[in-house]
Structure formats: C-alpha cells, structure tokens
C-alpha cells in the first residue's frame, strides 16, 4: 500500500511540475516571472549536477561556480569575439569544461571529504580571480553576447528563452534520473555507502567518481552558456566563491536524496532572492538567513523529502479515515 502511495507521489510530482512549467509563462503571471523561471531553470541544471555528486556519491564540490563560469566565458568569448555560431560555442564550451574536469578529476578525487571541499574551493577561487585578470572585459565582464537561434528563430525574449532553458533542464533531469536508476546509479550508491565495500565488489571507485564529476561539470557548463546567451552580459561576480556555496545550499535545501529535489532547491533559493523578499528592503538578508536556518532545522532532508513525507502522511491519514468510515458503514 505504502509503496503504491509513494510511486503515485512520484508521478504526480512530475506531472504537476510539467503542468506548472507549461502554464506559468502564460497570462496568469506578470512578465518578470518568466525571467525568474529562466534563472530557476539555469540554476536547477547546476544543482542537479551537484546532487548527483553530493547526494549519490557523497563527494562535495565547493567550486562548481568555476565550471559554470568556464562554460559561460567560453560561450561568450567564442560567440562574441570570434563570431562563432552560439550553438557551436556552447558545444565547445561543454567539451572544454568536460576535458578540464577530467584532467583535474583524477588528482583531486584522491582527496576525500573535507579536503575535497577545500581543494575544490581553492580551484573555484583561482578560476574566479583569473576571470577578472585574463578574460576579456576584466572585472566589468562581457556585454552584447548574441542570442541563441534556430534558423531565423532567435531566442530573443524571456518568453522564448523560458522554453529553451526548461527544454534543456528537463533533458538534464531525465538523463540524471536514468543514471540514478541504472546500474551506474547502484554503483554510485554503493560508493556513498562504503568505498571499501564498493571496491571489493569490483567497482572502479575512482573512475566512477571522476565520471560523475565530469558529467556534473558539463551540466554546469551548459547552464553557464545558457546564462551568457540569455543575459547577454556576464561578469566574474556571477561566478565568485559564494556562488559555489549557494549551489550547495540549493542542492541541500531541495533534498539530496532526489534528482527532482534540485528543482525545489533552486526554485526556493532563486524565488527568495529575486521575488519573495523584495518588500523587506534592508531586512531582506536577515529574513533570508532565518529561512535558510529554519528550513534546515525543520526539514533537515530538504524540501522535496519533506513534501514527500507530508504527502504520504496525509494520504495515510485519509486512508485510515476512509477505512474507518467504511467499517462504520458496514457495522450499521
């Protein structure tokens, strides 16, 4: 019975998410919601990568903004300065980021736990400083990055970008869901449980970790490219060390135990920052800090798991009530 409730929950989340996604850009909501939804989509893509890494292999990265930024900068420079087709620029950016992640992956994943966090943080700081020093535009960044377009159809409004970004985002979510449910997913969970045990049943632990790391970096790179082509302007401050921390916050807030949690994590953090707290002026960051703490104290496994368990609890209550009713009906 409980199994069925849980499975139904899973489908109802996906269905309601799809319905929401299709409904939101239309007339019911003011125009800037599409802008915020685009940002949520982009952030979700970065967060999903981190969920795979942190939630399924137990490896933390405090430097994801670096890969997010490398994608954005490659896309921006190639398409603006060298007039490459933006799609091609995006592809090259993803390949370059993946290659970079692969090269540094092996040495860096010899580190574990906290030391891995420190190393990725250092990497993030280095890349961030180099953006300001070596990349065109310096600290002020690059403006006038061209839009993505298919044939003559340019993604030049937020409404159009919305479908582009969420298209990408859903593909990324589905790929990740497949990985998690596949053989590799089980291997990843085994690594999370115990590396020694995983090793002993013939899983090449290092290779799996690096593979997932590369995949999550490619996600981040794609997200960065989408950001660059949507915003038309990027600057190093969008990829500073604090952004890496915020990505971890999104992943944990949503719930590490599920790929779909990323949508909730990115959703709540972006919404808080860009919309929900706007009326509070200078009190904004105080309330933001309070909410971060409260969510983690009362929903330590994240929003998604909390919603899920509340749903299951409610459903159980309902079923019990119905059963009672039926029983009473039978008695009378």
């Amino acid at each position: 019975m409980l199994e069925r409730v849980k499975r139904k929950w899973y489908y109802s989340v996906i269905v309601s998410l799809l319905v929401l996604l299709i409904v939101i850009p239309f007339d019911w909501f003011p125009g800037h919601y599409t802008t915020i939804m685009v940002l949520i989509g982009i952030n979700t893509m970065v967060t999903v990568g981190l969920c795979l890494l942190l939630g399924y292999t137990g490896q933390v990265s405090l430097g994801h903004a670096a890969f997010y930024g490398i994608g954005a900068y490659f896309s921006a420079v190639l398409s603006k300065t060298y007039h490459l087709n933006p799609w091609l620029a995006m592809l090259i950016a993803a390949i370059a980021t993946g290659a970079f992640a692969y090269v540094i992956g092996y040495p860096i994943f010899r580190l574990k736990g906290n030391y891995l966090a420190v190393a990725t943080l250092a990497l993030g700081v280095i890349v961030y400083i180099l953006f300001g020093k070596l990349a065109p535009g310096g600290p002020d960044g690059i403006a006038g990055i061209p839009n993505l377009s298919i044939g003559g159809f340019a993604f030049d409004t937020w409404f159009k970008r919305y479908f582009l970004v969420w298209g990408f985002c859903l593909v990324v979510l589905l790929i990740s869901q497949n990985i998690v449910n596949s053989r590799s997913g089980r291997a990843l969970r085994a690594i999370h449980g115990s590396e020694a045990a995983a090793e002993s049943i013939g899983i090449n632990v290092d290779r799996f970790k690096v593979k997932i790391f590369v995949l999550s970096c490619v996600y981040a790179s794609l997200a960065g490219s989408l950001l660059a082509h949507s915003m038309a302007h990027i600057s190093p401050s969008s990829f500073d060390p604090m952004v890496s921390v915020i990505v971890v916050v999104m992943a944990v807030m949503g719930g590490l135990a599920s790929i779909w949690g990323a949508v909730f994590g990115a959703g709540i953090v972006v919404m808080l920052k860009h919309e929900l707290l706007l009326g509070f002026g200078e009190l904004e960051i105080i309330i933001y800090g309070l909410i971060l703490m409260l969510v983690m104290i009362f929903m330590p496994e994240g929003l998604f798991v909390w919603l899920k368990s509340s749903y299951v609890k409610l459903k159980e209550l309902y079923i019990r009530w119905r059963l009672g009713q039926i029983r009473r009906g039978a008695e009378t």
Partner: peptide, 20 residues
C-alpha cells in the same frame, strides 16, 4: 529595490520594474 550588488538580480529587478 535592493540589488545586493548582484548583476543577475539587477536584471530581474529591472524586468520587474518594467513589466510589473
């Protein structure tokens, strides 16, 4: 509105000011 010095947030705020 408060941009927090964040360029991405500046863009969403401008959109909000213009459209909403």
């Amino acid at each position: 509105y408060d941009t927090e010095g964040d360029s991405t947030k500046s863009v969403t705020l401008v959109t909000k000011l213009i459209e909403e």
